[in-house]
Amino acid sequence: MSSVTITFPKSRLAKLLRQPGGKSVSAALADAEAALDLLAIPCAEALDVSLGAIDRLLAEFAAAPGAPTANALYLDVKAIIGVATTARLPDMDHAAFSLCELLDWMNNAGKWDVGAVVVHVQALHYLRQPAALAADTSVRAVLMGLKRVREKIIANA
């Protein structure tokens, strides 16, 4: 019979948070948002570097679709999620997440569709443009299109 041990550790964090001083929730959130604003431009620059790397990995994947190239691409695409939102490009995050879902599915199914991946990477480039921020309708159309592509690939498997 397996044994289960239950312990009730005291949290030092709880005690520290209650110490006098500190910040109000509203002030802390405002300060954190202001601190993140400082990262918007560096994050946008980092995204451009990442997109260059993603393009190179896409070329490798297109030349030899398979788990090794798909995994490398997956890790690089995954790394931009979160960075894009800080760069004030949240729609890029949605597209990157969609591509991660697709690559993960392909990896599990052992089936590769280069066209669907290319469309996603093209969408990442489109959503990186500042003009895309203003064109809300086209952004929604792009994200819906990616969803349809993903669903079609999975349904046709």
Binding site: L16, R18, Q19, P20, G21, G22, K23, V25, S26, L29
Partner: peptide, 11 residues
């Protein structure tokens, strides 16, 4: 998010 309740993460 408007809460004025304080917490201290300094230490």
């Amino acid at each position: 998010v408007e809460s004025r309740a304080k917490f201290n993460l300094k230490n």
